[in-house]
Design a binder for these strands. Structure first.
Lengths: 209, 209
DNA sequence: GCCGTTCTGGACGGTCGAGTCAAGAATGGG
DNA sequence: CCCATTCTTGACTCGACCGTCCAGAACGGC
């Protein structure tokens, strides 16, 4: 009853993401996206609204993917392997950064740095993403504590916040030019300093400075 | 023998920094800077070159300040207080982020995220800044190890990289919307998990995962 | 006080880029 | 087979912005 769309929406969003990822929000031109997708600007505006709305869409999808990746590594599984899951996740994040020879970094970090201050929608999306990652990490840390791989006296919330900070920090220092090899070792070091169960003295770590 | 400048260069750079800091590189207009500084564009271009050169200048000054702050906290002093100096520095960075209610973040992080991929000068400046911070931290960690506040079996290079990652990560998660209180506790947690000298079993932390 | 020199201000040019629009194309229903 | 509807295209508008340019102003030297 009407002319159907000639493009795959997911594919168009993917191409748009490449552009925003490479050049940032302000640095990307709608003409670039039109050329990259092969669409006319009219179709682009008709399907996604203006530049801001398109970016929101791309940014939101990216954040969702970030959480999905974390869920794939962290969610569920026996307590006995919780620490392994955490280690695998942290190392994956480091490896992603270390292998990013083009220094593209993470679109969430880039978009947040550029827009969070001015765009409440971006800020809100970033914040909920952080909360989701934090919750996933906290759950796994608690699991590792139950199994005795991490000091049960430590606060899982605090350790989760530390690991999240390390993961996001790895992205930041990687982009800032720290050597890939150093980036990789940071992940290992962070995992190595997680408090192990005390054999003698009862806890203490993670309650205060 | 010629008309002298009617403006203070440092003050102009300060105003320019405010603009770049608030809006990023692409998002800042030279007219904004002209208005913010009260200078005509002719003076601006005459004194600093084009927009790119002006940003380089501002970005470079900021990076220098970042290192200077770290030096003020970390450089020199007795080994006995090395760990205190490290703690003070890490907590200061966290406090800066936590108190940054306007979410302005760090210009180095913002500039690096936006431009490092495309602008070699920005990338290089960020990289040398990271190296300088890393060296400062490593020196202080080694001092703390000599005094017996940190496990001498740990690799100071690795611990320094971890702390640098935490410091930069704090900035990132703060910008992403993590609660200020959480940001503050991350600093404490990071300091709390630094490996203390072993009383019985000989080292092991920080060599491998 | 005149001159060369450097600084000042802002109008201007040229380009760029976001968003619009109108003419035409593809579809399914009647 | 015709029509209503939605999609497509890219030329177009119009505002924004970088960088220039020039007329004039503020100096020091002579």
């Amino acid at each position: 009853m009407a002319r159907p769309r000639s493009f795959d929406e997911r594919e168009v969003l993917e191409r748009a993401r490449e552009q925003f990822w490479a050049s940032g929000y302000a640095g990307t031109r709608m003409d670039d996206i039109a050329r990259a997708t092969g669409l006319g600007k009219g179709s682009l505006y008709g399907a996604f609204g203006d530049k801001g709305a398109l970016f929101q869409r791309v940014f939101g999808d990216w954040c969702a993917t970030v959480v999905e990746v974390a869920e794939r590594f962290l969610a569920g599984g026996p307590d006995a392997e919780a620490l392994d899951r955490i280690a695998a996740y942290v190392r994956l994040m480091a490896e992603n950064t270390a292998a990013d020879t083009e220094r593209r970094g993470c679109l969430m970090a880039k978009g947040t740095a550029e827009l969070a201050e001015q765009d409440p929608a971006v800020a809100a999306r970033a914040a909920t993403t952080m909360s989701a990652l934090l919750a996933l990490l906290r759950t796994e840390i608690a699991a590792a504590q139950r199994h005795g791989d991490i000091d049960p006296g430590a606060d899982p919330e605090r350790l989760a916040a530390l690991l999240l900070t390390v993961v996001r920090g790895i992205e930041a220092v990687g982009k800032a030019g720290l050597a890939p090899e150093t980036v990789r070792t940071v992940a290992d070091t962070a995992l190595a300093v997680l408090p192990r169960p005390a054999r003698r003295s009862p806890s203490s770590t993670g309650r205060d400075a």
